[in-house]
Design a binder for these strands. Structure first.
Lengths: 226, 226
DNA sequence: TCTATTTTGAGCAAAGACGCTCTAAAGATT
DNA sequence: AATCTTTAGAGCGTCTTTGCTCAAAATAGA
């Protein structure tokens, strides 16, 4: 245990000059909804959970370490619990109901991250990690995890509505059809082919190459810009 | 000081069984961007600030009290610092840079609230509270307050883009012109009259009454639904 | 080899959105 | 009292968007 941060905090005063060390401070946790697409379905990663009685699975999470940034805590929990080097976790919401955690006063900062399935292979090969299709009713999850999943899907869908694969689910070159299939999985609904093409094509960079060996008329291959 | 929450927290263990009381915990603050419209201009409320050296004004904020909800802390700080009974503060973002506050490790949960000018009259009559037009360059504010203001405006503008006065800046009945003027102030740009009417009129409830005594042809009065 | 199937990409007509103009109805001004 | 100014609301032509259709180009199967 390092004490020096604690010593600093003892010296904090609030606007009334009261020493902040007189106030209890909440524990701060991060919980992350890791979304991916597996077989045309949007899925969420859950890990075995031994702490909350009555619940077998939960979103990966951890407590914030001393002086740590939230995004780093998210990446640390994903690395340790799912062997994933996540991309850029995005903050969703702080869940702050004082009684939400039976262990005490814990604020949870919910995050969302979209990760290609390939990067999850190692994690899914181990016990205690699995994917849940979000279309099927999610089983009982502890704390605010169902609400986190709902917000995560809302956020991801908003991002996928107007931009081509902002989460980078497609690695390498892809056709407009590949892109549309991924978007349909994320959105959970059919997307009109023409409308989709008209919206996305101007935002893509053609590689100049064409598909080969696939069924149907060959099509152009694209990449995301930058 | 009440000790019982602290005693509970001492009993927390993390997933490795380590006692959480061995970890330092961050102080948690809330900072709120209170937006209003004064004279066709979007303004933000700032309060006199004595703690951060070199800064005269800051967004109203406070530290989270024991077992308190974030929204309640926001309402408390607005009540105490601006005599405002705010409406529904909305979370924006957690600012978590460990060194953002020279006093120590403080997480700040930024909020935004849109409040009609009438409710701010009492606050503005006192010293140490004023409105800053956001169009003019905002003076130096401490911590992440400029970033909070940027996010708050972004959020408010997104809400005002598709819905009639979601923040309730207009109290009572109003004409489509009144509504458009408020929206123009929030958006910071001119809005086409026809487009605005076509978007908003279906979302409004006509009172059946007409304006009287005003310049120009009388117009219908509306209210927001529910 | 020839036909069926699949998929791309362009063409096209209908529907919708948009912004301008015009008339009506009030107060303001001379 | 007559005219000017301001504002609301409807009408109208244009431009954009949308979804369907069709030809082209490849593989799969008989």
């Amino acid at each position: 245990m390092r004490n020096y941060e604690l010593i600093e905090i003892v010296a904090i005063t609030n606007d009334a000059g009261k020493r902040l060390s007189d106030y209890p401070r909440p524990s701060v946790a991060v919980d992350t909804a890791v979304l991916t697409v597996s077989g045309d379905e949007l899925c969420i990663l859950v890990v075995a959970h031994y702490k909350a009685p009555g619940y077998d699975w939960a979103l990966p999470g951890t407590f914030l370490h001393e002086g740590e940034r939230l995004a780093d805590a998210v990446l640390r929990s994903l690395r340790e619990k799912a062997h994933v080097s996540g991309r850029q976790p995005k903050q969703l919401h702080v869940f702050d109901e004082p009684r939400r955690d039976p262990r005490g006063w814990v604020l949870s900062v919910a995050h969302v991250d979209v990760v290609p399935l390939e990067e999850l292979e190692q994690a899914l090969a181990t016990d205690g990690v699995k994917l849940l299709p979000v279309a099927a009713r999610v089983p009982d999850l502890p704390y605010d995890h169902p609400a986190i999943i709902a917000k995560a899907m809302e956020r991801a869908r908003a991002a996928y509505r107007s931009e081509p694969d902002p989460g980078g689910l497609l690695t390498g070159a892809f056709t407009l059809r590949d892109l549309r299939m991924v978007h349909q999985a994320v959105m959970g609904e059919e997307l009109q082919r023409d409308t989709f093409r008209r919206l996305m094509e101007p935002q893509l960079v053609p590689t100049g190459e064409m598909t080969d060996g696939a069924r149907g008329r060959p099509s152009r291959l694209f990449r995301r810009p930058r």
